[in-house]
């Protein structure tokens, strides 16, 4: 391998795809993603959010009580 090859993460040719947020700031790409999921998967995502917040809050509390 050539020692002058650029690492993949430094490629200048990658352009992020356009996103079609409108003035209200709503992330349509996120809506399309959630709509692609089944109801069970959507609820699992919401559950994961709750679990993550719970873990952070209780992790912080446990850290303070040590």
């Amino acid at each position: 391998m050539s020692s002058t090859a650029a690492p993949p993460s430094a490629s200048p040719s990658v352009t992020p795809p356009p996103h079609d947020d409108e003035d209200d700031g709503v992330d349509v790409s996120l809506i399309r993603w959630t709509l692609s999921l089944t109801p069970s998967e959507r609820l699992a995502v919401a559950q994961g959010f709750v679990d993550s917040v719970h873990a952070v809050v209780h992790g912080a509390r446990n850290g303070r009580t040590r």
Binding site: I31, W33, L35, L37, P39, R42, L43, V45, A46, V50
Partner: peptide
């Protein structure tokens, strides 16, 4: 409420 919105496909959070 929020769980109905989630199940309907809206990316919102609820507790």
């Amino acid at each position: 409420g929020g769980v109905a919105a989630v199940l309907a496909g809206a990316p919102v959070s609820t507790f």
